[in-house]
Structure formats: structure tokens, C-alpha cells
Design a binder for these strands. Sequence first.
DNA 1: GATTGTGAAAGCGTTCACAGCC
DNA 2: GGCTGTGAACGCTTTCACAATC
Lengths: 227, 227
Amino acid sequence: MASTRRRIPEASVARLPVYLRILTEQHDQHVTSTSSEGLAELAGVNAAKVRKDLSYLGSYGTRGVGYDVDYLIYQIRRELGLTHDWPVVIVGAGNLGQALAGYGGFGDRGFPVAGIVDIDVSKIGSVIGGVRVRSIDELPSIVQGQSVAIGVVATPADAAQEAADRLVRAGVTSILNFAPAVLSVPPGVTVRKVDLASELQILSYYEQRRQSSLQSVPTGSTRGASA
Amino acid sequence: MASTRRRIPEASVARLPVYLRILTEQHDQHVTSTSSEGLAELAGVNAAKVRKDLSYLGSYGTRGVGYDVDYLIYQIRRELGLTHDWPVVIVGAGNLGQALAGYGGFGDRGFPVAGIVDIDVSKIGSVIGGVRVRSIDELPSIVQGQSVAIGVVATPADAAQEAADRLVRAGVTSILNFAPAVLSVPPGVTVRKVDLASELQILSYYEQRRQSSLQSVPTGSTRGASA
DNA sequence: GATTGTGAAAGCGTTCACAGCC
DNA sequence: GGCTGTGAACGCTTTCACAATC
């Protein structure tokens, strides 16, 4: 039974995976209990933020004591919907698509690659990370056959909208977009994007400021932004 | 002469690369003039936001008319520090490091790969995207020899902090981190992270909400968050 | 005594709405 | 008349600070 609790602010949702990763590391090192202070240190944020974030999940800490690592892992996983696997389908078997398919980190973390497709006939048939590249025409059968809810767009920019359209038509309702293009999708479909060139350009901005004037700039752990 | 203007809010800085890309496409299609409304549509944001963002650069529009595409491209590029190339060095020649090195999108957009290094001797010497993989011991000479300011961490999580430390010691002051780990760096060094597993987990959260209750969820173009 | 959970305050970012300018 | 540039209002996010609880 999935939670029907109050919705969690977006900024908090984006930090839960970080806490989850840290807690999982703690678990692997046989740490059984932790505090907002300890988590904050490892996550590169402050303790009040950790407590506020975790409070949206419910009251799973113990005052005067802290948080039970395993219990908190369980609760975060439940909230994020990680109690079952989410197979993903990758569109685009170029450099990036291949790297993503071959990258173990996906399957390991509950996102097995259900398939990788490309429109280019010359790429079809090759095997990447144990998954055979198939024709984009097989997208609907992959999505429906394996109940794929999440699609990954790893095409060039000019093919990205078409890829997204096909994913949506096939029944996908979440898209992770690596192409440098703004996707338009119908209501009810969530898109997140990862834009490598943008990230470098943002770094360039701060780098430049530092180099021209000698001025202060967001610094220290983790991103200056979210995202 | 780089701008010594007021600092631009982080959220705005993060959108400038998107506007820049759209304007460049407009330029390529011989569009000479645009409006905040037109840009907003293509960027998937609203017009007021576009105007506010652009106003931080200065007053480069014309009331009653709009923005000159080429002039705005020039101003954004200048503000982002894109008037010259920023060579980058990649640490980690695994799946992802190779894909990044081979991905044309970097060099094309002013971030040529100055080098790719790995600690694993068996990887050294192979050539990826025209760049030979070198020993991590050569990091200082690559960074200093080619004035590299930006480093990319594409190692496994457990090697990421060590990679960051080496980059910082070599003189890099901006890091783009692909490893699922929080990096700690000295003041004066900027870090941005791209965390693939986190992005999928965030999608999972909204997917799950949609599937359990039938409830509304951030939707439509672009990210529900940042990032 | 320690640490959580949370109202209230402060700080940012977004949107509104319109004056200013072409 | 049309579109920018921007102060003001609004809403979201972070941080503070402390009462509640173990």
C-alpha cells in the first residue's frame, strides 16, 4: 500500500536520494543509528534541513537519540516508490545511450534496462551491457510487455522531441531527457532533464567571475544549484 | 574585458544556457529578432521570467520591438564567459568517461577535452574520441600545461573524493561530478553534480504518487525541479 | 543531556501588473 | 499599440530557535 500522505516539497524530494545513498553506505558499514547532524555532514547540508526533510516522511526519529538507519532507509525507499523495480527503456544507442545501458548503476539501484532502441538500422542488433539494441518500432511492445513507466531520451537534439512523442505514445509517463532540447509533453507526463553542456556553461560563469574580479562565488560541497 | 556587473541569481544563471541554445537555433534559422514571449514558449517558461532573467544582463531589448537575436547571443555568451574555450580534463575512463570524451557536444560548445586520465594502468594508452587515456599522474601537467580550470569526475563513487582532491591539487577550480558521492572541496572551488540514479529516483517518486492515488504531479515541459 | 519535530522568521525566486519607451 | 524592464506581491525554501520527548 503506497503512502497517501501529504505531498513533499520538490526541493526535499530531490534530496531524499542523497540521504538514501548515505544511509545505505552507513548500513553497509554496520552503522545502526545516526543523527540529523551526522547525516547533514555527509550530505553537505545543514542539520535543520535534514530534520525538516525527514519530517515530511513522518516522525521516524527518536528525540534525544537520532534515527535508526535501517528503518529510515525503509521509509525513504517507500516514499520514493523504490519498493519495486522500475524498468526503463533507452531511446538512442549512440555514445551516451550505450554508456547508460552499460553503466551498472542503473540496474543496481532498481532501474533495470528493459530495452534500448534506435532508429538507425546499422545500430540494431549490437549488444550493449547485455541488452540488444532493437528497432524503435519495437518501443510499444517493450513498454507494454514490461510495464515500463520511465523512458530515457539519449538522442541528438533534433531527434529528441520525436523520441519523446514515441515514448509517450507507447505509454511512458516519466522521461529523463539527456538531449539538449526542451521537450513538450502532454499533461500527466513528468520530464526531468540532464544537460551536460549547460552544466559546463554554468561552471564557466562562476569561473569567469572568479577570474575577472576577485569575487566570491558559490563554493564548497555539492552543487551551487538543482538542481 | 569581462563584465564587472552585479551578480546574477543562481536560478537565472542556470537558465541562460537554455536561452542561449534556443537563440542559437533561431540564428541558424535566420531569425533576427524575437520577444520574451517567443523565447518563453521555446524554453518552456513564462515570459516574465525570461524578461527578468535577461534584465540581469543589462537592458538589451527594445521596448515595443523585442530582442535582437545575434546581439542577445553575444551578451549571454559574454556573461557566461563563453568568449573563449574552456578545456576540461576528465578523470575516469570507464563507461561514462569514455562516452563523455567521445561525445562531440563538449568540444562543439567550447569545452574541448584537454585530456582523460585513469588510475587503472590497463586503460592507459587507449584512444577515445581522438584523445589518448593517460595516467592520473599526468594530471598536474595536463592542467597546468593547458590551463584547465574545469575537471570532470567520472569515476566510481569510492574513488570520487580522491579524484576531486587530485584535481584541486592540480589547480582545477570547478568540478562537474558524475559520481554518486558528495565531494568536499576547499573554499574557492565550485562543484556541480549530475546524479543519474537520483534523477530516476525522483521520477520514481512522482510516478508512484500518480499510480497510488490519482493525484496531480509536476508535469508539462522541462524538469519538475532543477536540476 | 541529547536530539527530534516544528512554528515562526528570513531569504530567494517567481509572477503580476504597469510605467516607460519605442 | 506593443513589448520591455522592474517594483511590489506572492509563494516556496531555508534557517532559526525552542518546546517536546526520550
